[in-house]
Design a protein around this nucleic acid. Structure first.
Lengths: 229, 229
DNA sequence: ATTACTTAGTGTAAAAATTACACACTATAT
DNA sequence: ATATAGTGTGTAATTTTTACACTAAGTAAT
């Protein structure tokens, strides 16, 4: 119902759960707050939605401001609006997640002044989080667990070229269970969204694995058909 | 980011997509607006979130005010926040869906004054909708299509006691395709969430079918295991 | 060049799930 | 008694899923 527009004191924000993968562990990006409330606590990066931004634009801007990253696959997944979730007033927040490959270069560019610092922390050992951010994170993890079974989001966590073992590793981390190597390969290849390259892995002290990349074209053709893990 | 709370003129609302099933068709509840903008247009029922309500509470209140219904399974599914979606200012809206069985008695109790009337309209023949409500509806339908494959939400559209044929009918309507009778029964029974009653359907001029009901207890035990259609 | 080490890469058989498909039964209405 | 309309049921063929272990290839150290 939207025909009358009272001026209400409500604030609408976006918080981001950025999952990162460095080849070993799943991490999330947290900031250490520099201001009250929850000064010195770790929190999810977030910000207030600007008056002329769409929600997705706003999420992209926030991600960019906090990390310098652009062009990342992000998706809103839940709105949190408990009237008491923020000690200073009513703040409804919309949670987005993003999946990012870590390592290499382009890391953590300067951060807005409300944070002392930002850091990628392994999800296996998270500190207490400010506000209801633990809940937001939990729901985000749950979300990508479900999503990775049906959508090709695992690739976002990997470099453009990757080995099947690396891909399996990502699935195992997100789903939280071991998968059978042969069955995994059989299945993932049968989806027909991988392109086998002529290249091999480099810099390893054992037999180098074949590199693959995700084939967006092939995936686009499959549209509608469900992938299922 | 939530440490400073500027007073912004933003409005946060909830819109509901109420899917109803009368035994024949899928319908949604629409209201005919009585005020500008979009006076005389059909729109989704919605309202502004109160300052001390949680989002779910607010959605329940709105549903109750518009229909008199309580205790309905509702879930938020997407936030719409295009800066231009409302001609009079910034309104971010959170969409909820609900599934309701129609027919019988408890229908459409008096409606707030912003609507001329409210009506259940078949989804196969919807009018043009106000604002971006067509988009909101589309996304809602998409959502329940996916959800009905994995969660026991079909039962919300049926009376407490129902026949397997009625249940199949609901699945067919939502998924938009025919299902094989024998395979459907085999599968739905194998989930083990139905309780066969000693009762038979009444008032039909042919062999009466056995009635079933959804067994919440059994379903609770299955928790974690995925249903899949 | 031999050896030790580490991961890559591969096939099959058994079990389970899915699909396609047709007819006799039962209740009611006339 | 007969026509009608929907109920309720089984099976064989196919596909998908699961469980499972060894050889091949490359690197590093000697």
């Amino acid at each position: 119902m939207e025909q009358i527009l009272p001026h209400l004191d409500s604030v609408f924000s976006i918080d981001c759960v950025l999952f990162g993968f460095d080849g070993k562990e799943l991490k999330i990006l947290l900031i250490e707050r520099n201001e009250e409330p929850f000064k010195d606590w770790w929190a999810l990066p977030g910000n207030i939605v600007g008056p002329d931004e769409s929600l997705d634009q706003s999420a992209s801007r926030i991600l960019y401001e906090l990390t310098g990253l652009r062009g990342i696959y992000m998706e809103q997944y839940y709105a949190f609006g408990d009237p008491n979730r923020h000690p200073q007033g009513r703040v409804i927040t919309l949670a987005y997640y993003a999946l990012i490959r870590l390592g290499g270069d382009k890391e953590l560019r300067p951060i807005s002044n409300y944070a002392k610092r930002a850091n990628w922390l392994p999800i296996t050992d998270l500190p207490k989080l400010a506000f209801d951010h633990q809940k937001i994170y939990d729901k985000g993890l749950e979300k990508i667990k479900r999503r990775i079974k049906h959508q090709p989001i695992a690739f976002e966590l990997l470099p453009e070229k990757f080995t099947l073992t690396q891909l399996q590793h990502v699935y195992e981390l997100v789903l939280g269970k071991k998968l059978d190597k042969r069955n995994f390969r059989k299945k993932i290849v049968s989806f027909g969204v991988l392109k086998e390259l002529d290249e091999k892995q480099k810099g390893v002290s054992y037999r180098a694995a074949t590199l693959y990349k995700f084939d967006k074209r092939k995936y686009a053709k499959l549209f509608g058909k469900e992938i299922s893990f």
